[in-house]
Amino acid sequence: MLKKIYLGFIVLIMLAFSGIAAADEISAKQVVEEFQNDLIAVMKQGKELGFKGRYDKLDVAVKKSHDLPKIARIIVGKHWEELSQEQQAKLEKAISQLSISAYAHNFKDFSGESFSFISEEETGRGGVVVHTNLHIPGEKDVKFDYMMKKKDEGWQIINIIADGVSDLALKRSEYTSVLSKDGFDALIAKITEKIDNYATQ
């Protein structure tokens, strides 16, 4: 009898904890909305912060919402396995800095912009695409589609498609070409040059 009571108690505890976990789990949509809120907040302080300030503010937001290691691997494709562990780590760091720099450069001031959620759909491989619009006063809306994958720590962005143009596809086309023709050091130099340009424009 005591054994049955004990087992029942354990089951109740497990159900309670699983309920807490489910409640705490952030959806793909929520990840995107939280990131977009961070972008708008930085834009509102954009001129005051300057590039360095915007970069510092977005560093945590981008690393939290984007799967930067996976993005780095996808960008170089089959060449990833040809890189040493040191080179892989160096590339991941460079892609991380490039991504944050691009946001700090492109979202640098505020003139009433806002994001809105359109819809969410599952992909064939267990992913989710979150469809949103960026509203710019006096201009045509820009459609942002966020391709999401779930990891142990939750949903993360692996690609952004702006008005039908895939950021990941553009980077992969450009950077695999540099890596194939000119080698790893040339690729890092190319990425570093882009980061520097973002910081000074």
Results as ranks from 00 to 15, higher is better:
residue 120 E to L: 08
residue 116 S to L: 08
residue 103 Y to E: 07
residue 93 K to M: 01
residue 187 L to P: 03
residue 64 K to L: 06
residue 170 L to F: 12
residue 53 G to K: 02
residue 195 I to M: 08
residue 22 A to Q: 14
residue 133 N to S: 07
residue 176 T to N: 08
residue 72 A to L: 07
residue 92 E to L: 01
residue 91 L to S: 05
residue 167 D to W: 03
residue 89 A to W: 08
residue 185 D to W: 02
residue 110 F to I: 03
residue 10 I to V: 14
residue 195 I to T: 09
residue 173 S to D: 11
residue 52 K to T: 09
residue 129 V to T: 13
residue 108 K to H: 06
residue 7 L to A: 12
residue 135 H to P: 04
residue 165 V to N: 06
residue 126 G to M: 13
residue 64 K to W: 04
residue 72 A to T: 10
residue 101 S to G: 07
residue 42 V to D: 05
residue 101 S to M: 06
residue 141 D to R: 00
residue 92 E to G: 03
residue 26 I to W: 05
residue 181 K to L: 06
residue 151 K to T: 10
residue 149 K to H: 04
residue 71 I to E: 12
residue 187 L to S: 04
residue 14 M to G: 15
residue 162 A to W: 03
residue 30 Q to C: 01
residue 187 L to A: 01
residue 138 G to C: 00
residue 158 I to D: 15
residue 67 D to H: 14
residue 180 S to Y: 14
residue 4 K to G: 04
residue 87 Q to N: 07
residue 8 G to S: 15
residue 16 A to R: 08
residue 110 F to K: 01
residue 171 K to Y: 09
residue 169 A to H: 11
residue 6 Y to Q: 14
residue 14 M to K: 09
residue 89 A to F: 11
residue 54 R to E: 01
residue 158 I to K: 14
residue 41 A to V: 04
residue 138 G to N: 00
residue 102 A to D: 03
residue 77 G to R: 15
residue 141 D to S: 00
residue 111 S to I: 06
residue 133 N to A: 10
residue 132 T to S: 13
residue 25 E to Q: 11
residue 125 R to A: 11
residue 170 L to W: 06
residue 149 K to W: 05
residue 44 K to F: 02
residue 48 E to W: 14
residue 47 K to V: 00
residue 62 V to K: 01
residue 38 D to N: 08
residue 110 F to H: 03
residue 40 I to P: 00
residue 47 K to P: 07
residue 148 M to I: 05
residue 51 F to P: 09
residue 87 Q to E: 11
residue 57 K to W: 04
residue 164 G to H: 07
residue 81 E to T: 08
residue 42 V to P: 01
residue 102 A to Q: 07
residue 39 L to T: 10
residue 163 D to S: 13
residue 170 L to S: 12
residue 17 F to Q: 10
residue 24 D to P: 10
residue 6 Y to A: 12
residue 197 N to H: 04
residue 75 I to T: 15
residue 140 K to N: 05
residue 180 S to E: 11
residue 15 L to C: 13
residue 146 Y to I: 07
residue 80 W to K: 12
residue 173 S to Q: 13
residue 52 K to A: 14
residue 83 L to M: 08
residue 37 N to W: 14
residue 189 A to G: 10
residue 45 Q to K: 15
residue 26 I to L: 12
residue 152 D to Y: 09
residue 92 E to D: 02
residue 105 H to V: 12
residue 52 K to F: 12
residue 134 L to R: 01
residue 54 R to M: 00
residue 54 R to S: 02
residue 128 V to P: 11
residue 158 I to Q: 10
residue 40 I to A: 03
residue 147 M to S: 09
residue 20 I to Y: 13
residue 64 K to V: 14
residue 83 L to I: 13
residue 172 R to A: 15
residue 109 D to E: 15
residue 145 D to S: 10
residue 141 D to E: 11
residue 141 D to T: 01
residue 122 E to M: 04
residue 146 Y to V: 08
residue 81 E to F: 14
residue 140 K to E: 01
residue 51 F to L: 11
residue 30 Q to D: 15
residue 100 I to W: 10
residue 98 L to T: 05
residue 123 T to M: 02
residue 41 A to C: 09
residue 83 L to E: 09
residue 84 S to Y: 08
residue 16 A to P: 15
residue 157 I to Y: 08
residue 157 I to N: 03
residue 4 K to A: 13
residue 77 G to Y: 06
residue 118 I to G: 10
residue 145 D to E: 12
